[in-house]
C-alpha cells in the first residue's frame, strides 16, 4: 500500500493506482476527455492535470497516467490547475464547439467564451477511438498518422481496411461525435441543444459506410429538406 496526501488528506492506495483513480475513489472531481475506465490511459487531453510536489519544484502532471508514489503531495484543484483547465477548455471550444461533451465541461467550469479564432473540427485527437479499436474490439484498424497540425486518425494510407468490422465502437466513444450540439452558432450555445446544422460525418466520404449511431440525429432529414 502506498501512503500519500491528496488535497491535504492522507490516503492509502494500492501500488499501480493512478492519481486519477485515487481521486475518483476519494470523490475529488477531476474532468477528463480522453480517459475511459475500460481503456488504457493516454494523457492526450491534459484536462485531468493535477499539481504535485511543493514550492519551486511543483509541477502539473496528467493524473490519468501518473502512478501513485509514496509520500507524494497532490492538489487536484489548486489555482494553477484551475487556470490551466479554463484555458484548455477555451482551446477545446475554439476547435470543436459543437461537441456537447465539451460544452458541458466548459459550462461546468464557467468558461462562457473563447478568445481564439473559431475553428470547426470534428476530431480532437484524444485517441479514444484508436484505443477502443485496439484494446476492446481487438481490430486495430485505425491509428494516428502525421505530426502536429497534420496529425489525423484513419486507416493506414487511407486504404479501405479489411480488419474494420464496422462495429461503430469508435463513433460510440468519440466525445466530439457524442451528443453533437446542434445550435446554429455552437460556440455561443454552451449547452443549448436545438436545431440541427448538418452531420459532418455524412459530408465526408471516408465515413460513408459507417453506421450512424447518433440518437437522436435528425441531420439526414434536415439535409434532405435543405437539398429540396
Amino acid at each position: 500500500m502506498i501512503t500519500m496526501k491528496m488535497n491535504g488528506v492522507d490516503i492509502q492506495v494500492e501500488e499501480g493506482t493512478t492519481l486519477l483513480e485515487a481521486a475518483r475513489f476519494m470523490g475529488f472531481p477531476i474532468p477528463t476527455l480522453c480517459y475511459n475506465e475500460a481503456l488504457s490511459p493516454y494523457g492526450a487531453c491534459r484536462l485531468c492535470v493535477v499539481e504535485i510536489g511543493e514550492g519551486e519544484r511543483s509541477r502539473l502532471v496528467s493524473s490519468c497516467t501518473y502512478p501513485a508514489t509514496e509520500g507524494l503531495k497532490v492538489r487536484t484543484a489548486s489555482k494553477r490547475v484551475m487556470r490551466a483547465r479554463k484555458v484548455i477548455l477555451e482551446l477545446l471550444l475554439a476547435s470543436c464547439p459543437q461537441s456537447k461533451v465539451i460544452q458541458d465541461l466548459a459550462s461546468k467550469f464557467e468558461v462562457r467564451q473563447q478568445r481564439f479564432k473559431q475553428e470547426y473540427e470534428d476530431c480532437i485527437l484524444c485517441g479514444l477511438c484508436v484505443r477502443m479499436c485496439e484494446e476492446q474490439m481487438q481490430a486495430k484498424a485505425i491509428g494516428f498518422r502525421g505530426r502536429g497540425e497534420n496529425r489525423s486518425i484513419g486507416t493506414p494510407f487511407d486504404i479501405k481496411t479489411d480488419v474494420c468490422r464496422l462495429c461503430g465502437g469508435c463513433i460510440y466513444i468519440c466525445p466530439a461525435c457524442q451528443l453533437r450540439c446542434t445550435y446554429t452558432e455552437p460556440e455561443k450555445a454552451i449547452c443549448g441543444g436545438c436545431a440541427n446544422i448538418s452531420a459532418p460525418c455524412l459530408e465526408k466520404e471516408k465515413f460513408d459506410d459507417m453506421m450512424c449511431y447518433m440518437d437522436p440525429c435528425v441531420a439526414c432529414e434536415i439535409i434532405k429538406d435543405k437539398r429540396g
Binding site: 494523457g43 482551446l91 479564432k117 485527437l125 502525421g146 505530426r147 502536429g148 497534420n150
Partner: peptide, 21 residues
C-alpha cells in the same frame, strides 16, 4: 515548434498553433 510538435497532447499541439496564430 508548431511543425515539430508530435501532436499527442492537446495543449502542445493546439497551444503552439494558437500561439503562432
Amino acid at each position: 515548434l508548431k511543425d515539430e510538435s508530435c501532436g499527442k497532447c492537446f495543449t502542445c499541439r493546439k497551444g503552439t498553433q494558437r500561439m503562432y496564430e
